[in-house]
Simulated scan of single mutants.
Amino acid sequence: MQRRSTQGVVFVHACPKALCQHVGWALESVLGAPVSLSWADQPVAHGAYRAEIAWTGAPGTGAKLVAALKQWPMLRFEVTEEASHGNDGERMSYVPGRGVHRSPVSANGDLVISEQQLRHLAATATSVEAFRHGVDALLGSAWDADLEAYRYAGDATPATWLHQVV
């Protein structure tokens, strides 16, 4: 039997120093392989650190990584999973107080809103402004607004590759 695999990236945008090792352990528990994160100061949040790590694993690994990381509600992070045979790509973002936003992603990296989501929104929006607000919610605009400064602060950080034991 051939095993399917995909890949993605975990971006830990802000993590208190006391949790850095725990984050590594959580990623190891999902990936089944040792993890060595290169932590750097997060200039946007005093006392916080950031790291990113690329991974390979079975489809659905991204969601498992999110489940492992969201147990610490003070983290800010994103997990991407590329499309694989029979599976859409997706991006999952976590912001304290907002929880997780999860969206399918197209081959070029755009978030995808389905026909059914748009039809429902068009049928239920009571005004043009409500429709705009609904589209913003489907796109996760509030998560993006919160995370943008954290993303920018990490633009020059190198990525490390991890491979899940399959």
Results as ranks from 00 to 15, higher is better:
residue 1 M to N: 10
residue 5 S to L: 12
residue 5 S to N: 09
residue 8 G to K: 01
residue 8 G to F: 03
residue 9 V to K: 04
residue 10 V to P: 03
residue 10 V to K: 01
residue 10 V to I: 13
residue 14 A to N: 03
residue 15 C to K: 07
residue 16 P to G: 11
residue 16 P to C: 05
residue 17 K to M: 11
residue 17 K to D: 10
residue 18 A to Q: 15
residue 21 Q to Y: 14
residue 22 H to I: 03
residue 23 V to A: 07
residue 25 W to G: 07
residue 25 W to Y: 13
residue 27 L to G: 01
residue 28 E to F: 04
residue 31 L to S: 03
residue 32 G to I: 05
residue 34 P to Q: 07
residue 35 V to P: 07
residue 35 V to I: 15
residue 37 L to H: 01
residue 37 L to S: 01
residue 39 W to F: 12
residue 39 W to C: 07
residue 40 A to G: 05
residue 40 A to H: 13
residue 43 P to V: 11
residue 43 P to A: 10
residue 46 H to W: 06
residue 47 G to T: 13
residue 49 Y to A: 07
residue 49 Y to T: 01
residue 51 A to F: 00
residue 52 E to W: 03
residue 52 E to M: 14
residue 53 I to K: 00
residue 53 I to E: 03
residue 54 A to I: 04
residue 56 T to H: 11
residue 58 A to E: 15
residue 62 G to P: 07
residue 63 A to I: 07
residue 64 K to L: 13
residue 64 K to I: 00
residue 68 A to N: 02
residue 71 Q to K: 11
residue 72 W to E: 10
residue 77 F to P: 01
residue 80 T to H: 04
residue 82 E to F: 03
residue 85 H to M: 11
residue 86 G to F: 08
residue 87 N to I: 00
residue 90 E to L: 12
residue 92 M to G: 00
residue 95 V to R: 02
residue 97 G to E: 09
residue 98 R to W: 10
residue 101 H to L: 09
residue 102 R to L: 14
residue 105 V to I: 14
residue 106 S to R: 11
residue 106 S to I: 10
residue 107 A to Q: 12
residue 107 A to V: 07
residue 108 N to Q: 12
residue 109 G to C: 09
residue 109 G to W: 08
residue 113 I to P: 08
residue 113 I to C: 12
residue 113 I to G: 04
residue 115 E to H: 13
residue 118 L to Q: 06
residue 123 A to G: 14
residue 123 A to Y: 00
residue 124 T to S: 15
residue 124 T to C: 11
residue 129 E to H: 11
residue 130 A to G: 06
residue 130 A to L: 05
residue 130 A to C: 09
residue 132 R to Q: 15
residue 132 R to T: 06
residue 132 R to C: 13
residue 137 A to D: 14
residue 141 S to E: 13
residue 143 W to V: 01
residue 144 D to F: 11
residue 148 E to W: 07
residue 155 D to Q: 09
residue 158 P to T: 12
residue 159 A to G: 06
residue 162 L to P: 00
residue 162 L to D: 01
residue 162 L to K: 00
residue 162 L to M: 12
residue 163 H to M: 07
residue 164 Q to H: 11
residue 165 V to Y: 03
